[in-house]
Design a protein around this nucleic acid. Structure first.
Lengths: 111, 111
DNA sequence: TTGACATACATCATAGTTATAGGTATTATC
DNA sequence: GATAATACCTATAACTATGATGTATGTCAA
């Protein structure tokens, strides 16, 4: 199941997950929740989207995980690797490029 | 083959096609070209993406078409209907909402 | 103490979208 | 008269996100 570079009309979940993990380590359930709250309910990716992404990112060595018990809960904490940081930079600039392109066409004057 | 509202991580081609047709009527091949040039090569949707969309939009009565010969060429000119105009407004505000959501999470300070 | 709800993980089937590759036909250009 | 550009079209493959479902544990109120 090979993945090509996202066109970034998709690929937003990967971007947001990497961005969240660039701030501090987090566990899956928390990521699902924070995507929803930090975007003020604008975006909401379900667990069925986020968990497979985390597994994929770990297989790519963009994140590493550590199982830990906190508050009587077993959680898989993920943190960004150096490679993941580079990937985040790539995806961020790609996202900016695409939104800028859309803006050009949407706002462009003439015909 | 019903289509739901795009999450707008997809749906960009529909948005751009409607936007172009909101300015003036155009034909398919021209739309393919102008998406590429007006976004300064940032975005490029092939004919295999644009033509099916035009057919879909016509089936939805969001655009209407008229075959015409111009410069010795047979072209299908498309123009926006009232319904298409409303749809464009919807998709535009949805796109803004989503990009604003991404920006919130990406730029948000704290953790 | 039990039932409901939230937390936390996981996977699968399906639906929907875009990309790729191919196909036809006409007109311009060299 | 060959090649490239214009102009249309379709089918298939690849990918993503959703929604359903499943497990297990912890919390809290009745």
């Amino acid at each position: 199941m090979k993945k090509t570079n996202p066109s970034f009309l998709n690929g937003v979940p990967e971007l947001l997950v990497l961005r969240l993990l660039s701030r501090r380590e987090m566990y899956g359930y928390q990521i699902v929740d924070e995507i929803r709250t930090q975007t003020r309910e604008t975006l909401s990716f379900g667990e069925g989207c986020v968990y497979p992404y985390l597994h994929y990112l770990e297989a790519q060595k963009q994140v590493s995980s550590q199982r830990r018990e906190v508050d009587g809960r077993n959680r898989n904490y993920y943190k960004l690797t150096t490679r993941g940081g580079k990937r985040l930079e790539e995806l961020t600039s790609e996202w900016k490029r695409v939104t800028a392109g859309v803006a050009l066409l949407m706002e462009g004057q003439h015909a």
